[in-house]
Design a protein around this nucleic acid. Structure first.
Lengths: 339, 339
DNA sequence: CCTAGTTGCGCAAGCGTTTGCGTTCAGATT
DNA sequence: AATCTGAACGCAAACGCTTGCGCAACTAGG
């Protein structure tokens, strides 16, 4: 049978309470006794039952992490970093992967997480009702990725500024017809696409370029979507000479579409992405880098801080630095002819 | 305060036992009463405390998933698929990300998972001691990725056959000097690199080609490693005309190295990978596709089956189909000249 | 009409910890 | 010597649920 606290108590000839205190480093146990207990516990291979201890103490030593798609690079990377911080602090991670709308709905109505976690890190942007549901858990909450929400600690980046630097780069190269591949409004209340669009429009306005709605197209933040979007742009009467994709994955899709159309990058069309995907360097994609893992780490740390210091509200929003990275997918328009 | 089972019991005027039975669909409750209880529970926003119920019942309704790197595409994808199966069946997923050796060691010595899960899906290959530790948990176990182990249900692919088809393709194209970028023995007892190497050697032998140890190099299963490995190969007096990379990520690194060396693919050097990474299609990489998500799904399903039918041992090993995919990174040697 | 079987529900004993409080006892303080 | 003070430890009551068993009330069979 599995060994319980009373077993190690008997083995040491003390009470269960003393064992409990000894093993958790609580005061009220002599060092000598503590050593004996620890030894006995080790010998018996004792591990405290989490169910029992969290039932008794009210603490679960578990953090819930909810993410839209673990499989996608961005979320996987954030999760990876956050998990390391949590587990180093002795917390376990309960993962909820809410890709499909059904899964998402089920999660937020049933809230299986209730009474199971000490805090929640949400890698997806909860809509107002979902946010309310999460708040009802009455534990510290944090979000990476845009959209300030009362009660949530949020760490993110300057999406607007990032988009500006990307588009400004294209404009400075001399491009006047700059397309954008965006991820549309799919999950409502998710402000990143909007912020990045704002940056795009800002720069155009600054440069005195009339924005053309036909140049804005939806890539759904996936490779396939980006490919489709790029094809649409190429089908235009006046296709763009440069494209700003709101994510590297969409930019990769765009590159693929361009290759299929036998157009050369950057000679015929320039492409700039956003995120600095792990493979972007491999393919030489010009992009705006954001510190993905660092965001996960930071969010995790802030959450832990909130747990340590009870009745400390959510931390102030954190904005992580971004960085424009020039690689090989951008050049002045029609550079072939100009050479 | 948080609402407990007695609250809904009082609200309905019945005992807690009846509430418990009603809410979990157990027999012994009239349909009418059940409806009333369900309604009351919903109204009060009641959720059973997992700690309490698992303490009482011994079941945790939780599956532990241990993975080396959540951030990597392969593991993220497997996890994504497995999580969906688990959560659809009402199980939560406890994630352990064991990238660093310290984290891994800590996990297997302290086994924080003990008494916390009903089953374990390991996406990393446990060495014999680790396997013993896991078995001591006394719950169903499953593994994706190579290496049969007593007590584990394993679902994998034919690594050797896959490697054979990749290398045979190169040999059939006329290549005689075929390099290999492998992930070496880093985590011991992880047979995939060995099996893939076996396939590589088989084909060479079949074709009457003397294997050259200098053509085998270590890419550590990462993009950077692949790049380094390819550079080494190119520095050889007689560099290979084709390269088999044991993973797509390493193949991508190889492509990058080739680009840096101003060599053209496939004209100067052919490259074939393994895995069919989500971005391989984007870059046109010839590769051997394995059903990654399907493996996660299948492993999860088998685990659930074992949970449903108690005292059913681990399932028979499952081998998922693989498929060679011809894209654009392979061609006959020196095809430029031959044209 | 009596018995046997079913159905619906309550009782109470756990499940393995944690923790407030009480007890004991050695040593310090007057 | 009597009292006080901590330190070290034990007691027992939670924590919120599950489940075997018991007990009515009701149905059906003879």
């Amino acid at each position: 049978m599995t060994v319980s606290i009373t077993d190690v108590a008997e083995a040491t000839g003390v009470s269960a309470s003393t064992v409990s205190r000894a093993l958790r480093g609580r005061p009220g146990v002599s060092e000598e006794m503590r050593a004996r207990i620890v030894a006995a516990a080790a010998e018996l291979g004792y591990t405290a039952s989490r169910s029992a201890s969290s039932l008794a103490s009210g603490r679960t030593c578990t953090i819930g992490v909810v993410v839209p798609y673990v499989g996608r690079w961005f979320f996987g990377t954030v999760l990876d970093a956050a998990e390391k911080v949590f587990s180093a602090a002795g917390y376990d991670v309960l993962l909820y992967n809410l890709g499909s709308p059904e899964a998402r709905k089920r999660f937020f109505t049933k809230l299986p997480i209730r009474k199971r976690v000490d805090a929640v890190l949400s890698l997806l942007i909860p809509d107002p009702e979902e946010a309310t549901a999460l708040r009802s858990l009455d534990v510290p909450l944090a979000t990476t990725v845009g959209g300030a929400r009362p009660g949530f600690t949020v760490v993110g980046i300057d999406d607007r500024g990032g988009a500006e630097s990307a588009v400004r780069h294209l404009v400075n190269l001399g491009h006047r017809r700059v397309g954008m591949i965006s991820g549309a409004s799919e999950p409502l209340h998710w402000t990143t696409p909007l912020d990045r669009r704002r940056g795009y429009l800002d720069v155009l306005a600054d440069a005195g370029i009339e924005p053309d709605p036909a140049l804005e197209t939806d890539g759904a933040y996936t490779v396939e979507g980006g490919e489709r979007a790029m094809s649409e742009l190429l089908a235009l009467r006046h296709p763009p000479t440069a494209v700003f994709a709101q994510s590297d994955e969409m930019a990769m899709g765009a590159l693929r579409a361009l290759r299929r159309h036998r157009l050369r990058v950057p000679d015929d069309v320039s492409v700039v992405g956003f995120d600095d995907h792990e493979l972007s360097e491999v393919i030489g994609l010009t992009t705006v880098a954001q510190p993905v893992a660092a965001q996960g780490r930071e969010a995790a740390r802030l959450l832990l801080a909130q747990l340590d210091d009870p009745d400390a509200g959510p931390a102030d929003p954190v904005e992580m630095p971004i960085r424009f990275i020039l690689r090989e997918t951008t050049a002045p328009p029609h550079s072939r002819r100009q050479r």
